[in-house]
Amino acid sequence: MILPIIAYGDPVLRKVAKAIDSEYPKLETLIANMWETMYNAHGVGLAAPQIGLPIRIFLVDTSPFADDDELSPEDQEALKDFKKVFINAKITDETGDEWDFNEGCLSIPDVREDVKRKPKLTITYMDEDFKEHTESYDGLLARVIQHEYDHIEGVLFTDKLSSLKKRLLKNRLDKISKGKINVEYKMKFPNIKKGR
Rank of each mutant, 00 (worst) to 15 (best):
S63C: 02
N102F: 08
M34G: 09
K80V: 12
K160R: 15
S163N: 14
E36M: 12
F157R: 10
S136G: 13
F86H: 06
F82S: 04
H151W: 03
L141M: 10
G195Q: 10
K180Y: 03
F189I: 01
K26N: 15
L3M: 12
I31L: 09
E184C: 01
F130C: 05
L168Q: 14
P11Y: 03
L121S: 03
I51E: 03
S162E: 13
L168C: 06
E23I: 06
F101W: 05
K186H: 08
G43M: 06
L140I: 08
F58T: 05
A89F: 00
M187P: 01
V44G: 08
R14F: 05
D68P: 10
A41G: 10
H151C: 07
S162G: 14
R14V: 11
P73W: 11
D67V: 11
I192C: 00
F86C: 11
I123K: 02
D110E: 14
W99R: 13
C105Q: 06
L156V: 01
K160Y: 11
E70I: 08
T134P: 09
D100W: 06
L79T: 11
T29A: 15
P109R: 08
D174C: 07
R117T: 09
A19Q: 04
I181L: 07
V111L: 08
R56D: 04
E28T: 14
D67G: 13
L79S: 07
P11E: 15
V155Q: 07
D129T: 11
I108E: 06
L79G: 13
G139D: 03
A78H: 12
F130D: 09
E113M: 13
D150P: 00
Y39R: 15
L13M: 07
I176S: 00
A142S: 15
H147Y: 09
L27V: 12
S63L: 08
R14T: 12
